[in-house]
């Protein structure tokens, strides 16, 4: 009895130890960035292990908002990311539903096709995307980058939505159709609210794809007025020297919306909203 209790305690301690180690490994780079952003000089490396360095200053943060077009980048990134999120969620919600509920010619091929697109690395798609956008006259425009981001995020989002709809009993929709809904009303009044965990994941994925993407943006957005945050951040890096303080401060600020979104939406990420609707 006692030995099994001891075993449990030891196991618990070990589990926590492993968790603590991994947390430290995960958090260490972030702490380094905090330190760099607070250093009075633009130094990347230091022998000091202090998180808050000596003579810590918020100079980099102030400079970011006063000397740099940081707010413009934030605006551009927000505009593009939110549009991509809304487009991604709306399109994935509907097409995922179609793939989940209807039988049509090309359904299997379509689903497989979406999956195949995920197998190519983004860099491989750069050239064809660039050429297509030139033909469409969308290079150096918000629309061009929004279409590109939406197109790259959609396959994953559609699969996520389809997978979630598959778990929602079809009888709920049938009940709604008998209760007076047409197919579309049954979808948005009954099924869509139940799919909110998947919608949140889809939304977050779309947002993050657009918010932190650099390579595609660097090709499409050449006008500095259209730059997004990752492009702006990269501009702190010059041939001869890099403004590490600004870089660190900007990186932390860029991180904030994503972290905030995760915290705000975490309760929606908890699945199981369908509990109680059907037997069991």
């Amino acid at each position: 009895m006692t030995s099994s209790k001891n075993k449990k305690i030891i196991l618990r301690i070990l589990t926590h130890l492993v968790l603590v180690i991994f947390t430290l490994i995960a958090i260490y780079p972030v702490l380094q960035v905090v330190t760099i952003s607070l250093r009075p000089s633009d130094k990347l490396l230091s022998t000091s292990l202090e998180i808050i360095p000596q003579n810590a200053t918020l100079k980099s943060y102030v400079s970011l908002f006063t000397d740099q077009p940081f707010l413009l980048w934030v605006r551009n990134s927000a505009l593009i990311s939110l549009t991509v999120t809304l487009t991604g969620v709306a399109l994935a919600a509907m097409s995922g539903y179609a793939f989940s509920r209807f039988n049509f010619i090309g359904k299997k091929v379509g689903l497989l096709g979406l999956l195949v697109t995920q197998m190519f690395p983004a860099t491989m798609l750069l050239l064809p995307l660039y050429l297509m956008l030139i033909y469409l006259g969308l290079i150096n425009s918000y629309l061009g980058i929004i279409i590109t981001y939406s197109a790259t995020a959609l396959p994953f989002c559609i699969w996520t939505m389809k997978g979630y709809y598959d778990t929602i009993p079809i009888s709920l929709e049938e009940a709604a159709r008998i209760d007076g809904c047409n197919q579309f009303q049954a979808f948005y009044k009954v099924i869509l609210p139940l799919a909110s965990p998947a919608l949140v994941i889809t939304g977050l994925f779309s947002f993050m794809t657009a918010w932190s993407e650099y390579i595609v943006a660097a090709q499409i957005l050449q006008d500095t007025q259209l730059w997004t945050l990752p492009l702006g951040l990269k501009s702190f890096e010059a041939n001869m020297s890099t403004e590490w303080g600004l870089y660190g401060a900007a990186s932390l600020i860029v991180m904030i919306p994503v972290v905030a979104l995760f915290i705000i939406l975490s309760k929606w990420l908890v699945s199981g909203l369908t509990l109680g609707s059907v037997k069991g």
Partner: peptide, 16 residues
Amino acid sequence: KDRDIAMVFQNYALYP
């Protein structure tokens, strides 16, 4: 919806 019928399902199908 236009058949003026109501249906009770095996798995209840209540809107959760």
